[in-house]
Nucleic acid binder design. Structure first.
Lengths: 224, 224
DNA sequence: AGGAGTTTGTGAACGGGAGAACAAAACGAG
DNA sequence: CTCGTTTTGTTCTCCCGTTCACAAACTCCT
């Protein structure tokens, strides 16, 4: 009864958006193994989620399945890719070419999903002679021109923590509106700019918390 | 009125656990800048959260503040560190010493928070001659003995996706009960084993989704 | 000592997401 | 063509997490 725009469903829940890339990867795996059709149960198992949750997630995109049959793998894969936006090409700049920046520049998972690293920038002049993943490491001063010339809207920060906020400020001023931050700092950015944070030590600390609980109360959940 | 064990509060919500490391980092920063006392408002601003949420989070640990005054930075920092478990030493093994494994091995944020990398393992014999971050890269076959000798309970997987599940299986069999997975795969592990996933391309895809929405409907939220 | 001003800790309302359960729809057999 | 089977799409309920709002408690000033 709700009037929904057929070509592009509105307001997909954030939790669902975070899972769509997982479904996309699972579908790609199924397609590579020759599967042409799958049920929500199979796909959910591959993606590591509940089948009811999967179906509800997919229902936000539209009705792309066939009752009694399941989903066409290739068709659903394309629909999810289109919804996320990875059918188009996303130019990306990486700032901070230390150990982590190297790893990110060489990560094949970016290019295969529509992300194209157009430039590697570092503030240290000693690094400007290096060539990483087929790209020259350039001066951070070139940020504005690179962003403008390549219509870059996504920036990756892999600098030390102290530099991260100023890099973010320059990125925002240059026109970047989405930032993936690997530096262990809280970034403050204006409204309209999205920031996602990946913090390696926080993940370990969360594991440590649960690990500690396991050893303190070993019989709390598991009957010995 | 609820009878709460005073020394160690029970069942801290998962969302709170995920934020405690952020508070810990913020407190460390405040301590280094010479601040001895702070209000929930200040700390919340530093940590990038709402002050009400911060107070509720801290209330799960106990009453470590003083009304009308605020929190003692050093005291609160210690209490949170103890609750998370980073006052003790956590031995960690890293498997897969490619670009990302290098970056992780060299990441200083681990050691400074109680995590000690005790071994770097790789299946490729060509890498066994390398020394990374002061540690020999050893054979993956040594996993079991290393885990046993060092009482390792946390493992980090930085291998390609195809190897991740078998590495995880070996880790679990060797006695590891917490896994931080950087490989782009869904791991299946038995109950009692915690897995946290860090997926670089998923983060970018989430950003791409929102970025796409911005350009498609620029006036949807912001009044022009 | 008493009152004004601050700041914490928490009870209560609110919103969103997860999971169960079921109706609707497609297919195939007879 | 009809009935049974399979699987999707959706509704409903419950639970977790967030936020508001306020009482309790502490300090400082007079």
């Amino acid at each position: 009864m709700t009037a929904r725009t057929p070509d592009s469903a509105r307001d997909i829940p954030e939790a669902t958006v975070a899972r769509l890339p997982v479904y996309l990867r699972a579908l790609t795996g199924l397609a590579e193994s020759g599967t042409t059709t799958c049920s929500s149960e199979e796909l959910a198992a591959t993606a590591g989620v509940n089948s009811a949750k999967l179906r509800k997630d997919l229902s936000y995109l539209g009705s792309y399945g066939t009752r009694g049959v399941g989903y066409d793998v290739e068709y659903l894969r394309y629909q999810i890719a289109r919804e996320i936006g990875v059918t188009q090409d996303w130019p990306v700049v990486i700032v901070g070419i230390g150990n982590l920046g190297h790893a990110l520049a060489n990560y094949s998972g970016f290019r295969s999903r529509g992300f194209r690293v157009v430039a590697l920038l570092d503030a240290d002049p000693d690094r400007h002679e290096e060539v990483v993943a087929g790209l020259d490491v350039r001066s951070f001063e070139d940020l504005e021109s690179i962003v403008a010339d390549n219509a870059v809207s996504i920036g990756v920060i892999a600098t030390p923590a102290v530099a991260a906020q100023s890099v973010a400020d320059r990125m925002v001023a240059a026109g970047i509106t989405s930032i993936l931050n690997f530096a262990p700092t809280v970034l403050s950015v204006p409204d309209g700019v999205d920031v996602r944070k990946v913090d390696l030590s926080i993940e370990l600390q969360i594991l440590a918390y649960h690990e500690q609980r396991k050893s303190v109360a070993p019989g709390a959940e598991v009957v010995s």
